[in-house]
């Protein structure tokens, strides 16, 4: 009996191992902008010490010309300056952006970091999240000068100018800001040409139940509702901004229709498709947009991060989904 039990336990262990090992990651579809400004790191190689007061109010002295940089946060803006990193944050997906990350290593530990892992790179400058606790920043400061980057700000001129001033690459920052502004203007013009600026839009999602993507945390909302000026129903805005209840509060299928805007999008997590549970939902089927087969589908994942190199793909995916929602063909 003991042998049988041992065998059974072995089979289960191997089975679980095989299950976990057998997966393959799906590659995201990324639109790459060929007109992205190809910047190079124009900094000198001599040591150039500088002292700044960080966003947290601490005084930090560091070498502005260092090439030994580790990004625990914000690499999507930093690499746009042509700066080559030693390592970058574990949450970054580099598919489509490989050239920016050449020679850099992805950090393995992102919760929030492994002291040992970062130390192994022997960095001279570390960039972190603005919201990182002072204790953690203090810990990293013992390894190398640590500077928090703007996290919550959606203003690229603020974000990029700050990095430019830290690295002494102010001219590059101006080029990148012009690029970000130009991209925004181009998308706005496209929106207007389609006559979408006066339409209301609702972005549904599915997390066990059908809900609406909350406002905070998803840069997609900033692009759509702030940058592009798309409108939304009052109850949709209230739902998105309501932080008193749980995030992704499940909306009753009976009430979905009350939240339907002129345009409807569905945002998936890590996939660009409407899950079966949504498409079979009776409340969903009753939506006008669903009946008329004009639901724009988008993947939320690329909107979890902000960065100037990500902007083009983020705009592109939104425009594609908006055009589907408005039944516009090229």
């Amino acid at each position: 009996m003991r042998k049988f039990c041992a065998l059974l336990a072995l089979i289960i262990t191997l089975g679980c191992g095989a299950l976990l090992a057998g997966c393959s990651e799906t590659e995201a579809e990324v639109a790459v902008d060929e007109n992205f400004p190809a910047l190079v790191d124009t900094r000198g190689t001599e040591v150039k010490m500088n002292t700044v007061f960080t966003l947290k109010g601490n005084e930090v002295t560091y070498n502005m010309n260092t090439r030994r940089i580790v990004c625990v946060f914000g690499s999507q803006d930093v690499v746009a300056f042509g700066v080559k990193l030693l390592a970058y944050e574990s949450s970054t997906e580099t598919t489509g952006y490989e050239s920016f990350y050449e020679g850099a290593t992805k950090l393995q530990d992102g919760q929030p970091f492994s002291e040992e892992e970062i130390l192994s790179f022997d960095p001279e400058l570390i960039f972190v999240n603005q919201n990182m606790s002072n204790d953690n920043i203090e810990t990293l400061n013992k390894i190398a000068p640590t500077i928090p980057l703007y996290t919550d700000s959606d203003d690229f001129s603020v974000r990029l100018n700050y990095i430019g001033s830290i690295l002494g690459l102010e001219e590059s920052a101006r080029t990148l800001i012009e690029y970000a502004d130009g991209l925004k203007d181009k998308m706005l013009a496209e929106m207007r040409s389609y006559g979408l600026q006066d339409k209301t839009l609702t972005i549904f999602t599915y997390l066990g139940n059908i809900s609406i993507v909350p406002e905070r945390g998803w840069f997609m909302n900033t692009i759509i509702y702030d940058y592009l000026g798309v409108k939304r129903l009052d109850n949709v805005r209230e739902f998105m901004q309501d932080e008193s209840g749980s995030v992704y509060e499940p909306i009753s299928a009976e009430n979905l229709r009350n939240y339907e805007g002129d345009l409807v999008m569905f945002a998936g997590f890590g996939e660009k498709k409407i899950t079966t549970y949504v498409s079979e939902n009776e409340g969903w089927k009753m939506l006008k947009a669903v009946k008329e087969d004009r639901v724009g589908v988008i993947d939320l994942t690329p909107y979890a991060q902000k960065g100037v190199i990500l902007l083009y793909n983020q705009y592109y995916q939104i425009m594609q989904a908006l055009k589907t929602a408005a039944k516009i063909t090229d």
Partner: peptide, 16 residues
Amino acid sequence: MNQMIRYTSGSSANTI
């Protein structure tokens, strides 16, 4: 995660 929440939270809300 998003598919399994339906099975792990215990809800009949989306039954068809």
